[in-house]
Structure formats: C-alpha cells, structure tokens
Nucleic acid binder design. Structure first.
Lengths: 184, 184
DNA sequence: ACGTTACAGTGAATGGCATGCACAGTCAAG
DNA sequence: CTTGACTGTGCATGCCATTCACTGTAACGT
C-alpha cells in the first residue's frame, strides 16, 4: 500500500494523492484502506519512511567532507521523490529510519570537535528540505527572471543582483551547507 | 478580505481556513469571494504579504549584528502569525513586500565583505521558516521525550543526546544563524 | 429623467475529498 | 459444523473549491 502510494506521488505529486487513487491502483475500494491505516496522515508517514530509506555508510578523512556526503545522500533521496519536500513536517521524528539517519550523522561526526550532532542533524535536514522545495518549485514555475524592471526601479539596491542565477538548487544547497560547516 | 482570512488563520491555523469561513466572517456567500480573488492560492499569497508586512529599518555597527536583527524581526512576524510557516513556498517571491525585505537585508550588508546578499536572504529566510515550523509543531505535539529507551538501545550513539533539550526553537534559530554568519 | 452598463452578490450545482458504519464473504481454529 | 477473526464492500455524510447563470444596484452618459 505504501509502495503504491509512493508510486502515485512520484508521478503526480503529493497534492494529487488521494486514498481513492491509491485504492484504484491496488484494485480495492477506498474504504478498504482504512483496515490498514488509521489516517491519511499516517499513510504519508509510512511513505516518507519508505522513500527516505536507510542511511548510507559514510567514510572519509575529513568530518566536514563526511557531513557533505551525508547531505548529498539525503538530497539524492529527495531528488528521487520530489514530493518529500511537500510533506509538512510534524515535530520530532518518530519513524525508525529517521533515527538511523541521525545516528549516521553522529557517526560521521566522530572526531569533530564540539559539534552538537543533534542540532546539526536538524539543521542540515532542514536545509535539504528547503532546497528540495526550491528545486521542485523551479521545475514547476516558469524560470521567470523574477526581478523585473519595475522592481529594480523601486529597490535600486537590488540592481546588482538582477541577472543573478538562482536556477541551480543544488548549488544553493552546497553554498548553505558550506557556510554552516565553516561556521561551526 | 485578506484581513478576515488572516484573523481566521491566526486563530485556527491554515488547515482550518476555508473560503466558506472567510465568507461567513464577512457575512457574504462563499462564491462572492471569487469576485475579488481568482483562487484560494492567491488569497493565501495576499495573506502572506499582509502578515509579513514591511521590513524594519535596521541600524547598528556590525553587519553580522544587523543580520541578526533582520532575522529577529522576521522571526517575530512568524511568531505573530504561526500559520505563515504552514504556507508552502511557491518559488521565487512575487509579492512586493518580499522584495522590500531582501532590499532591507542588502542595506544591512552594506559594508560586509564579499557576501552574496541574495543567497544569504534566501538562506536566512529559510532558517526562520524552519524554526517557526519547529516551534509550531512543538506547540501542537506533546513535548515527548522523543528518544525512548528502545531507540537508544538500537542506536547506542544517540545515547548522549538523550536528555537533550529541543524545546526552544528560538535558541535553535540563533544557533543556526550564528553558524551561518560565522561561516560566510 | 431615462436607459445602459459595470459591478456586487446570490443560489444552485458539480465533482472531489476523507472518513464512519453496517454488512458480506472467506478462511482457519475449535 | 460452528464460531469468530479478518478482509473487503456499499452506502452515506459532510466539507471543500470552483463554475455558471442569474438578480439587484449604483453610477454615468444623454
């Protein structure tokens, strides 16, 4: 059931995911799904758990590099399932896989000095989410020049950034992560 | 109309906001609202613009301190309207106020060396969003200890962080912003 | 003063959605 | 053979966004 739902979300996004469509995919009635799941929300939780999957094993000399690898892996999962960034986060993680990812980051921070792994995990995860959201919306919207003549006229200070490129969400993510890692 | 919608969202959250309720508040029929707004989505855009409001004037010696002030102000707006963090961002900003905030940050970065203001604005805004979301969900959920015995048993490395306090979203935000500003 | 036109709001209707409840088949254990 | 758990169905409810055809009303040009 979770797999069917993930397949639908992969194709049509989270907005278009309804229990009716999941049921159709499984050749069941909509209401039959309530035998297995209390709620649409819990189904989505299951989907997230499944789509994010298990954390990778990370090796490398530099702990910052290991952090970046961790981020890359997570970002890759988000890229495979763009709807992940549409899921509204609901507080602290309760799914087992989430703990596994945090654990993996803690392992990667083995020899890092004075780094608060839990906080960092939350921060990095959030950054991945954000730039995944950015990527998704960039894909959906026309890549509008976003700074028109009129705007620059009203806010002259923005003039310099006019032709700036914000089309590569991956690059933005790396920028943000690098800034954080340098600043720790 | 936007004000009525903001009032409802302030009280009951974004989930509970329906055009029917807005109409009731205004003593109109639901369908009458479509005279003024194409879509529920565009109504929400208007609401965001109104709720975020105009950026403050920021003064101070240190550009990092000015950045922090900018973040504090923005976070304050999110605190006043918690539903803001529930709004799914839709690509680059199109509302005039958004430009004004970016412009304000650019101004604050006047004498900062080699800082990409646009990128930084996006990053800081994202951070504010994230920790506003955290605060909202902390308020909604029971502040569960989130790391049970069973979890620590399966992931021994997480043991140290067991009793860690993640209840103060404001502190987390400052931690993240400080890390970023140091790392630029 | 009269007709026209833009505007503001209404009412009914459509199609989708999550979800609840009472029922029917099916299959295994006593 | 019977009972009971399990799996699935059908029907129904209430909420939602959105569309369309319609009515009143207020301003404006002649």
């Amino acid at each position: 059931m979770a797999d069917a739902a993930v397949a639908i979300a992969d194709e049509t996004g989270l907005e278009a995911l309804s229990l009716a469509r999941v049921a159709a995919q499984l050749k069941m009635t909509t209401t039959a799904l309530y035998r297995y799941v209390d709620d649409k929300a819990t189904l989505i939780q299951l989907m997230v758990d499944r789509a994010v999957g298990d954390p990778p094993a990370i090796t490398g000399d530099d702990w910052r590099a290991r952090c970046r690898r961790w981020v890359e892996h997570l970002a890759q999962r988000y890229a495979q399932h763009p709807w992940l960034s549409e899921v509204t986060p609901t507080g602290m993680p309760t799914q087992p896989r989430a703990y596994a990812w945090i654990d993996a980051l803690v392992a990667a921070l083995d020899d890092a000095p004075e780094v608060d792994a839990l906080r960092l995990a939350m921060l990095l995860d959030s950054l991945v989410r954000i730039y995944a959201t950015l990527e998704r919306t960039l894909r959906a919207d026309p890549p509008a020049p976003w700074l028109g003549e009129a705007v620059v006229e009203r806010f002259p200070r923005l003039g310099g950034a006019e032709q700036q490129d914000v089309t590569d969400a991956g690059a933005e993510l790396r920028y943000a992560v690098d800034a954080v890692l340098r600043g720790l």
